[in-house]
């Protein structure tokens, strides 16, 4: 009986080791190896250096027509934006003003991001319906409207990583916070020198939604 128990234990150990060696250094043996096709279908991102950009190309000349069909209803014929939808063109020199206008031309630091975003999320409500070429064409048209490339410039997977965007150097790294280091955990508790005069009231601005239930 004891011999049988020993036999079972050693048999179990053998099974255990067989399993571990099959799994190489996988710890839990969960999940499946992804196939190349599966990854290609989902791996759609494009990096600033152009890594991931699918083979394709387009010019602003052709892009204008697609833009008018697919984008202008929300973003305006000239990228000026309609209603509350974002403007895509203009805003140059406005970033330090009281009303900064952050468009693809004035603010976005990389052309790759425009491609990546349009391909994955636009047109709004019909995501991932544009072809690679159509996406390059629309991006080219936006870059052209923002005076970044010429109308006949052929934007493609080989040069999208080299487009120089006007606000490329407009971003600061790394995060400097905590940037308010006032009191090292011991703030003033009594007779603090602060102004307590009321200089504004939300009630007077009057943009709070009315609500019978609140």
């Amino acid at each position: 009986m004891l011999g049988l128990a020993k036999y079972i234990v050693s048999f179990s150990l053998i099974i255990f080791f067989i399993n571990s060696s099959v799994a190489s250094d996988r710890k839990f043996n969960l999940g499946q190896i992804a196939t190349k096709e599966e990854i290609t279908g989902w791996d759609i991102d494009v990096r600033p250096d152009g890594l991931g950009a699918p083979i394709g190309s387009g010019t602003a000349l052709i892009g204008e027509e697609i833009y008018t069909e697919q984008c202008a209803a929300c973003h305006g014929d000239f990228g000026e934006g309609a209603d509350r939808w974002p403007a895509l063109v203009g805003g140059e020199g406005s970033l330090a003003s009281h009303d900064p206008e952050k468009t693809t031309g004035s603010y976005w630091p990389y052309a790759s991001t425009i491609y990546d975003y349009i391909y994955r999320a636009m047109p709004y409500g019909v995501a991932q319906s544009l072809s690679y070429d159509e996406t390059y064409e629309i991006v080219a048209y936006l870059l052209y409207m923002n005076d970044i490339i010429e109308e006949d410039f052929v934007l493609s997977n080989t040069n999208i990583g080299q487009i120089e965007m006007p606000n490329r150097d407009g971003f600061l790294l790394p995060d400097p916070r905590p940037d308010i280091i006032n009191t090292q955990g011991n703030p003033c508790m009594k007779n603090c020198q602060v102004s307590t005069k009321i200089i504004g009231r939300a009630r007077d601005i009057d943009v709070t939604p009315e609500d019978d239930n609140s």
């Binding site: 970033l95 900064p100 952050k102 693809t104 976005w108 630091p109 971003f171 600061l172 790294l173």
Partner: peptide, 15 residues
Amino acid sequence: TSKYTDLLASGKARM
């Protein structure tokens, strides 16, 4: 880049 970056008075933005 275009969102969730903090535009400062200088016109530069923290990323």
